[in-house]
Amino acid sequence: MLLFIALANSHYFLSSSAYFGGFPADLGPLDAAVAWAIATFVDGRAFPMFGLLFGYGVAHIVRRQGDASPRTVRRLLWRRALFLVLVGFLHATLLYVGDILGAYGVLLLVGAWTVRWRDGWLLFVAALFWVLTALPSEDSFSIGTEGPDPTMLPTDLGVMVIDRAFASGFISLLGPIGFVCPFLLGLWAGRRRLLEEPSRHRTFLRFVAVGGITVAVLGAQPVALVHLGVIDVPDASSLSVVGPLHDAFGVFGGFGYAALIALVALRLGPRRGRVVTALSAVGQRSMTCYLCQSVVWTIVFTPFFLGLSSELTVATTALLAVATWLGTVLLADWMRRTGRRGPFEVLVRRVTYGRPLAA
Protein backbone atom coordinates (compact mmCIF):
# COMPACT_ATOMS: atom_id res chain seq x y z
CA MET A 1 0.00 0.00 0.00
CA LEU A 2 2.99 2.33 0.35
CA LEU A 3 3.33 1.92 -3.42
CA PHE A 4 -0.18 3.30 -3.75
CA ILE A 5 0.73 6.20 -1.46
CA ALA A 6 3.71 7.01 -3.69
CA LEU A 7 1.48 6.95 -6.79
CA ALA A 8 -1.16 9.06 -5.06
CA ASN A 9 1.25 11.77 -3.89
CA SER A 10 3.68 12.17 -6.78
CA HIS A 11 1.38 13.33 -9.59
CA TYR A 12 0.38 16.46 -7.67
CA PHE A 13 3.87 17.89 -8.30
CA LEU A 14 3.47 18.02 -12.09
CA SER A 15 3.35 21.39 -13.82
CA SER A 16 1.07 22.03 -16.79
CA SER A 17 -1.04 24.71 -18.44
CA ALA A 18 -4.33 23.16 -17.28
CA TYR A 19 -5.43 20.70 -14.61
CA PHE A 20 -8.26 18.45 -13.58
CA GLY A 21 -8.44 16.56 -10.30
CA GLY A 22 -4.73 16.80 -9.54
CA PHE A 23 -3.62 15.69 -13.02
CA PRO A 24 -2.53 17.76 -16.03
CA ALA A 25 -5.30 18.06 -18.61
CA ASP A 26 -5.08 17.15 -22.32
CA LEU A 27 -3.08 13.99 -21.74
CA GLY A 28 -1.65 11.73 -24.41
CA PRO A 29 -2.91 8.14 -24.68
CA LEU A 30 -0.30 6.61 -22.32
CA ASP A 31 -0.56 9.35 -19.71
CA ALA A 32 -4.37 9.22 -19.92
CA ALA A 33 -4.37 5.47 -19.30
CA VAL A 34 -2.05 5.85 -16.30
CA ALA A 35 -4.18 8.69 -14.91
CA TRP A 36 -7.30 6.53 -15.32
CA ALA A 37 -5.66 3.65 -13.43
CA ILE A 38 -4.49 5.89 -10.58
CA ALA A 39 -7.86 7.63 -10.28
CA THR A 40 -9.63 4.25 -10.32
CA PHE A 41 -7.49 2.20 -7.97
CA VAL A 42 -5.33 4.61 -5.98
CA ASP A 43 -6.54 8.17 -5.42
CA GLY A 44 -8.89 8.32 -2.46
CA ARG A 45 -8.54 4.55 -2.01
CA ALA A 46 -5.10 4.07 -0.42
CA PHE A 47 -5.38 6.63 2.37
CA PRO A 48 -8.60 5.15 3.83
CA MET A 49 -6.80 1.83 4.23
CA PHE A 50 -4.09 3.55 6.26
CA GLY A 51 -6.78 5.22 8.36
CA LEU A 52 -8.34 1.80 8.94
CA LEU A 53 -4.98 0.27 9.90
CA PHE A 54 -4.23 3.23 12.16
CA GLY A 55 -7.43 2.59 14.11
CA TYR A 56 -6.73 -1.14 14.06
CA GLY A 57 -3.29 -0.52 15.55
CA VAL A 58 -4.76 1.67 18.28
CA ALA A 59 -7.16 -1.15 19.19
CA HIS A 60 -4.15 -3.47 19.41
CA ILE A 61 -2.33 -1.04 21.72
CA VAL A 62 -5.38 -0.75 23.97
CA ARG A 63 -5.77 -4.53 24.13
CA ARG A 64 -2.13 -4.94 25.14
CA GLN A 65 -2.67 -2.67 28.14
CA GLY A 66 -4.92 -5.27 29.72
CA ASP A 67 -6.52 -3.96 32.91
CA ALA A 68 -4.84 -0.55 32.81
CA SER A 69 -7.15 2.33 33.71
CA PRO A 70 -8.73 4.36 30.90
CA ARG A 71 -6.72 7.37 32.06
CA THR A 72 -3.45 5.45 31.72
CA VAL A 73 -4.37 4.27 28.24
CA ARG A 74 -5.34 7.78 27.15
CA ARG A 75 -2.03 9.19 28.34
CA LEU A 76 -0.15 6.52 26.42
CA LEU A 77 -2.12 7.29 23.25
CA TRP A 78 -1.66 11.04 23.74
CA ARG A 79 2.11 10.61 23.93
CA ARG A 80 1.99 8.73 20.65
CA ALA A 81 -0.29 11.39 19.16
CA LEU A 82 1.97 14.28 20.14
CA PHE A 83 4.94 12.50 18.59
CA LEU A 84 3.01 12.10 15.32
CA VAL A 85 2.05 15.80 15.40
CA LEU A 86 5.69 16.84 15.89
CA VAL A 87 7.10 14.52 13.22
CA GLY A 88 4.26 15.46 10.87
CA PHE A 89 4.96 19.17 11.31
CA LEU A 90 8.67 18.73 10.60
CA HIS A 91 7.91 16.44 7.66
CA ALA A 92 5.42 18.89 6.14
CA THR A 93 7.71 21.87 6.65
CA LEU A 94 10.97 20.37 5.43
CA LEU A 95 9.91 17.71 2.92
CA TYR A 96 6.26 17.25 1.85
CA VAL A 97 3.47 19.64 2.75
CA GLY A 98 0.81 16.95 2.11
CA ASP A 99 1.91 15.04 5.23
CA ILE A 100 -0.70 12.81 6.91
CA LEU A 101 1.17 11.99 10.13
CA GLY A 102 0.19 15.28 11.74
CA ALA A 103 -3.46 14.68 10.86
CA TYR A 104 -3.24 11.21 12.40
CA GLY A 105 -1.76 12.72 15.55
CA VAL A 106 -4.57 15.26 15.87
CA LEU A 107 -7.10 12.51 15.20
CA LEU A 108 -5.60 10.35 17.95
CA LEU A 109 -5.60 13.22 20.45
CA VAL A 110 -9.38 13.26 20.12
CA GLY A 111 -9.80 9.59 19.20
CA ALA A 112 -8.20 8.46 22.46
CA TRP A 113 -11.58 9.16 24.06
CA THR A 114 -13.33 6.79 21.64
CA VAL A 115 -11.40 3.61 22.45
CA ARG A 116 -13.89 2.76 25.21
CA TRP A 117 -16.97 3.46 23.14
CA ARG A 118 -19.42 0.67 22.51
CA ASP A 119 -19.47 -0.89 19.07
CA GLY A 120 -22.77 0.72 18.19
CA TRP A 121 -21.40 4.21 18.78
CA LEU A 122 -18.28 3.49 16.75
CA LEU A 123 -20.32 2.32 13.76
CA PHE A 124 -22.87 5.14 14.05
CA VAL A 125 -20.31 7.94 14.21
CA ALA A 126 -18.26 6.30 11.43
CA ALA A 127 -21.36 6.24 9.19
CA LEU A 128 -22.16 9.85 10.09
CA PHE A 129 -18.72 11.08 9.06
CA TRP A 130 -18.86 9.05 5.86
CA VAL A 131 -22.09 10.82 4.95
CA LEU A 132 -20.52 14.19 5.76
CA THR A 133 -17.58 13.54 3.42
CA ALA A 134 -20.00 12.47 0.66
CA LEU A 135 -21.97 15.74 0.73
CA PRO A 136 -21.58 18.08 -2.27
CA SER A 137 -18.59 20.39 -2.05
CA GLU A 138 -17.34 22.95 -4.56
CA ASP A 139 -13.74 22.56 -3.39
CA SER A 140 -13.50 18.79 -3.76
CA PHE A 141 -11.95 18.66 -7.26
CA SER A 142 -10.04 21.34 -9.05
CA ILE A 143 -10.36 22.60 -12.61
CA GLY A 144 -8.08 25.40 -13.69
CA THR A 145 -4.82 26.70 -15.06
CA GLU A 146 -2.92 27.22 -11.82
CA GLY A 147 -0.05 24.85 -11.19
CA PRO A 148 0.97 23.17 -7.95
CA ASP A 149 0.67 25.38 -4.89
CA PRO A 150 3.91 27.23 -3.95
CA THR A 151 4.02 25.14 -0.78
CA MET A 152 4.35 22.06 -2.99
CA LEU A 153 7.09 23.60 -5.14
CA PRO A 154 8.67 26.33 -3.02
CA THR A 155 10.92 28.75 -4.88
CA ASP A 156 13.18 29.40 -1.88
CA LEU A 157 13.79 28.25 1.67
CA GLY A 158 11.69 31.05 3.13
CA VAL A 159 8.56 29.94 1.27
CA MET A 160 9.33 26.31 2.10
CA VAL A 161 9.60 26.88 5.85
CA ILE A 162 7.21 29.76 6.58
CA ASP A 163 4.34 29.06 4.17
CA ARG A 164 4.52 25.33 4.73
CA ALA A 165 4.35 25.80 8.51
CA PHE A 166 0.97 27.54 8.16
CA ALA A 167 -0.29 25.06 5.57
CA SER A 168 0.76 22.15 7.76
CA GLY A 169 -1.35 23.41 10.66
CA PHE A 170 -4.36 23.86 8.38
CA ILE A 171 -4.05 20.35 6.93
CA SER A 172 -3.49 18.75 10.35
CA LEU A 173 -6.63 20.35 11.78
CA LEU A 174 -8.97 19.66 8.85
CA GLY A 175 -7.43 16.44 7.55
CA PRO A 176 -8.71 14.26 10.40
CA ILE A 177 -12.31 14.83 9.27
CA GLY A 178 -11.78 12.52 6.30
CA PHE A 179 -10.11 9.86 8.45
CA VAL A 180 -12.68 9.59 11.24
CA CYS A 181 -14.76 6.93 9.46
CA PRO A 182 -11.82 4.59 8.63
CA PHE A 183 -10.27 5.15 12.06
CA LEU A 184 -13.42 4.21 13.98
CA LEU A 185 -14.07 1.19 11.77
CA GLY A 186 -10.45 0.20 12.35
CA LEU A 187 -11.07 0.30 16.10
CA TRP A 188 -14.13 -1.88 15.61
CA ALA A 189 -12.26 -4.36 13.38
CA GLY A 190 -9.27 -4.41 15.74
CA ARG A 191 -11.45 -5.45 18.65
CA ARG A 192 -12.47 -8.51 16.63
CA ARG A 193 -8.96 -9.16 15.27
CA LEU A 194 -10.40 -9.48 11.77
CA LEU A 195 -7.05 -9.08 10.03
CA GLU A 196 -5.02 -11.08 12.54
CA GLU A 197 -7.32 -14.08 12.46
CA PRO A 198 -8.61 -14.18 8.86
CA SER A 199 -9.44 -17.90 9.01
CA ARG A 200 -12.21 -17.14 11.52
CA HIS A 201 -13.67 -14.36 9.36
CA ARG A 202 -13.04 -15.68 5.85
CA THR A 203 -16.59 -15.17 4.55
CA PHE A 204 -16.87 -11.64 5.90
CA LEU A 205 -13.46 -10.68 4.52
CA ARG A 206 -14.38 -12.04 1.08
CA PHE A 207 -17.56 -9.97 1.09
CA VAL A 208 -15.66 -6.82 2.10
CA ALA A 209 -12.87 -7.43 -0.44
CA VAL A 210 -15.17 -8.06 -3.41
CA GLY A 211 -17.85 -5.55 -2.47
CA GLY A 212 -15.52 -2.78 -1.31
CA ILE A 213 -13.20 -2.86 -4.31
CA THR A 214 -16.11 -3.14 -6.75
CA VAL A 215 -17.88 -0.12 -5.26
CA ALA A 216 -14.64 1.87 -5.27
CA VAL A 217 -13.87 1.05 -8.91
CA LEU A 218 -17.37 1.86 -10.15
CA GLY A 219 -17.55 5.02 -8.03
CA ALA A 220 -14.30 6.28 -9.53
CA GLN A 221 -15.41 6.14 -13.17
CA PRO A 222 -17.14 9.54 -13.47
CA VAL A 223 -13.76 11.12 -12.67
CA ALA A 224 -11.43 8.46 -14.11
CA LEU A 225 -13.13 8.46 -17.51
CA VAL A 226 -12.57 12.21 -17.77
CA HIS A 227 -8.83 11.58 -17.44
CA LEU A 228 -9.13 8.90 -20.12
CA GLY A 229 -10.86 11.37 -22.43
CA VAL A 230 -14.00 9.25 -22.77
CA ILE A 231 -16.31 11.86 -21.23
CA ASP A 232 -16.07 15.64 -20.97
CA VAL A 233 -15.17 17.50 -17.80
CA PRO A 234 -18.40 17.98 -15.80
CA ASP A 235 -19.65 21.47 -15.09
CA ALA A 236 -18.96 22.96 -11.66
CA SER A 237 -22.32 21.95 -10.15
CA SER A 238 -21.98 18.35 -11.31
CA LEU A 239 -18.39 18.20 -10.17
CA SER A 240 -19.37 19.36 -6.69
CA VAL A 241 -21.33 16.10 -6.43
CA VAL A 242 -19.06 13.77 -8.40
CA GLY A 243 -15.85 14.82 -6.62
CA PRO A 244 -16.93 14.02 -3.04
CA LEU A 245 -18.56 10.75 -4.15
CA HIS A 246 -15.29 9.71 -5.82
CA ASP A 247 -13.51 9.90 -2.47
CA ALA A 248 -16.45 8.63 -0.41
CA PHE A 249 -16.73 5.46 -2.49
CA GLY A 250 -12.98 5.17 -2.25
CA VAL A 251 -13.32 4.52 1.49
CA PHE A 252 -14.90 1.17 0.63
CA GLY A 253 -11.91 0.43 -1.59
CA GLY A 254 -9.55 1.00 1.33
CA PHE A 255 -11.51 -1.53 3.38
CA GLY A 256 -11.55 -3.92 0.44
CA TYR A 257 -7.79 -3.74 0.02
CA ALA A 258 -7.22 -4.49 3.70
CA ALA A 259 -9.54 -7.50 3.52
CA LEU A 260 -7.92 -8.73 0.31
CA ILE A 261 -4.43 -8.56 1.80
CA ALA A 262 -5.63 -10.50 4.86
CA LEU A 263 -7.03 -13.19 2.56
CA VAL A 264 -3.78 -13.34 0.58
CA ALA A 265 -1.86 -13.74 3.85
CA LEU A 266 -4.21 -16.55 4.82
CA ARG A 267 -3.62 -18.26 1.47
CA LEU A 268 0.15 -17.97 1.84
CA GLY A 269 0.03 -19.45 5.31
CA PRO A 270 3.50 -20.02 6.81
CA ARG A 271 5.24 -19.78 3.42
CA ARG A 272 7.64 -16.86 3.36
CA GLY A 273 9.60 -16.34 0.16
CA ARG A 274 12.00 -13.48 -0.46
CA VAL A 275 9.32 -11.15 -1.82
CA VAL A 276 6.88 -11.65 1.08
CA THR A 277 9.69 -11.33 3.60
CA ALA A 278 10.87 -8.07 2.03
CA LEU A 279 7.33 -6.65 1.95
CA SER A 280 6.86 -7.62 5.58
CA ALA A 281 10.06 -5.73 6.40
CA VAL A 282 8.54 -2.63 4.80
CA GLY A 283 5.39 -3.03 6.89
CA GLN A 284 7.47 -3.21 10.05
CA ARG A 285 9.19 0.04 9.05
CA SER A 286 6.29 1.78 7.36
CA MET A 287 6.80 5.26 8.87
CA THR A 288 10.46 5.29 7.93
CA CYS A 289 9.67 4.12 4.38
CA TYR A 290 6.87 6.68 4.05
CA LEU A 291 9.21 9.51 5.05
CA CYS A 292 11.89 8.23 2.66
CA GLN A 293 9.46 8.77 -0.23
CA SER A 294 9.28 12.46 0.61
CA VAL A 295 13.04 12.80 0.42
CA VAL A 296 12.79 11.69 -3.21
CA TRP A 297 9.95 14.12 -3.98
CA THR A 298 11.96 16.96 -2.46
CA ILE A 299 15.09 16.22 -4.49
CA VAL A 300 13.29 15.55 -7.78
CA PHE A 301 10.61 18.26 -7.81
CA THR A 302 11.78 21.23 -5.68
CA PRO A 303 12.77 24.08 -8.03
CA PHE A 304 16.06 24.81 -6.26
CA PHE A 305 17.06 21.13 -6.47
CA LEU A 306 16.39 19.13 -9.67
CA GLY A 307 13.10 20.92 -10.44
CA LEU A 308 11.67 18.29 -12.79
CA SER A 309 7.98 19.04 -12.27
CA SER A 310 7.61 20.45 -15.79
CA GLU A 311 9.81 17.78 -17.38
CA LEU A 312 8.15 14.59 -16.16
CA THR A 313 4.83 13.24 -17.44
CA VAL A 314 2.09 11.33 -15.64
CA ALA A 315 3.55 8.03 -16.87
CA THR A 316 7.18 8.83 -16.01
CA THR A 317 6.14 10.16 -12.60
CA ALA A 318 4.33 6.88 -11.98
CA LEU A 319 7.54 5.05 -12.90
CA LEU A 320 9.40 7.28 -10.44
CA ALA A 321 6.86 6.37 -7.75
CA VAL A 322 7.33 2.67 -8.43
CA ALA A 323 11.12 3.01 -8.38
CA THR A 324 10.96 4.97 -5.13
CA TRP A 325 8.82 2.31 -3.51
CA LEU A 326 11.12 -0.46 -4.74
CA GLY A 327 14.01 1.46 -3.22
CA THR A 328 12.29 1.48 0.18
CA VAL A 329 11.62 -2.25 -0.14
CA LEU A 330 15.33 -2.90 -0.71
CA LEU A 331 16.23 -0.56 2.15
CA ALA A 332 13.78 -2.20 4.57
CA ASP A 333 14.94 -5.68 3.61
CA TRP A 334 18.58 -4.66 4.13
CA MET A 335 17.66 -3.32 7.57
CA ARG A 336 15.93 -6.61 8.36
CA ARG A 337 18.92 -8.68 7.28
CA THR A 338 21.32 -6.55 9.30
CA GLY A 339 19.11 -6.50 12.39
CA ARG A 340 18.20 -2.79 12.21
CA ARG A 341 14.84 -1.40 13.20
CA GLY A 342 13.35 1.60 11.43
CA PRO A 343 14.63 4.73 13.22
CA PHE A 344 11.21 6.36 13.39
CA GLU A 345 9.60 3.14 14.63
CA VAL A 346 12.19 3.06 17.44
CA LEU A 347 11.44 6.69 18.27
CA VAL A 348 7.67 6.29 18.38
CA ARG A 349 8.03 3.20 20.54
CA ARG A 350 10.35 4.99 22.96
CA VAL A 351 8.06 8.02 23.21
CA THR A 352 4.93 5.90 23.63
CA TYR A 353 6.19 3.29 26.06
CA GLY A 354 9.40 4.82 27.36
CA ARG A 355 11.53 2.00 25.95
CA PRO A 356 12.97 1.06 22.55
CA LEU A 357 11.40 -1.58 20.33
CA ALA A 358 12.64 -5.03 21.24
CA ALA A 359 14.70 -6.85 18.62
Rank of each mutant, 00 (worst) to 15 (best):
L266D: 14
T316P: 02
P343W: 13
R193K: 13
S69Q: 09
I171R: 11
L279F: 13
V264Y: 07
M1H: 12
F13V: 06
D247E: 08
D235S: 04
R200C: 01
L260A: 15
A103C: 02
E311L: 13
F255D: 09
F47E: 14
T133Q: 11
D232M: 04
L14M: 10
P29K: 09
L306E: 02
L319G: 11
H11L: 14
S168G: 08
D333L: 05
T324E: 07
G55K: 06
G51Y: 07
A112K: 00
S286G: 13
L320E: 04
G342Q: 09
A258P: 01
W113L: 04
A25G: 12
V208I: 14
R341Y: 04
L205H: 05
R285M: 15
A35H: 05
G169H: 09
R355L: 13
V296A: 09
V159Y: 02
E146I: 06
F23G: 08
F249K: 02
P244M: 07
L122A: 04
S17F: 04
P70T: 10
P270E: 15
D67Y: 05
F23N: 06
L108H: 01
D67T: 14
G57I: 04
S16M: 08
G327W: 03
L53N: 08
M152C: 00
T313A: 10
F41W: 15
A323D: 05
I100R: 02
F47S: 14
R274T: 11
Y104P: 00
F13H: 15
F255Q: 07
L330E: 06
G211T: 12
T214A: 15
L347F: 07
G327F: 04
T302Q: 12
L94P: 01
L291E: 04
I299E: 03
S309H: 10
G307C: 09
A359T: 09
L95M: 10
D26V: 03
M160V: 01
V85P: 00
A37V: 14
R64N: 14
V131E: 00
G57A: 12
L123F: 05
G229S: 09
L107K: 00
F4N: 05
A25I: 08
W117H: 06
L326M: 11
L239G: 03
M287P: 00
G57R: 06
A165P: 00
V295Q: 01
R341S: 14
A332V: 06
G339Q: 09
L291P: 00
V215P: 03
T40M: 11
R71A: 15
Y56I: 08
F124W: 13
W36L: 15
R355H: 11
F13E: 12
R349C: 15
G88T: 08
T313Q: 07
W117S: 10
S172F: 15
A112G: 02
A248C: 08
P303S: 03
T72C: 04
A265N: 13
A18Y: 06
T324C: 14
F204V: 13
T313E: 07
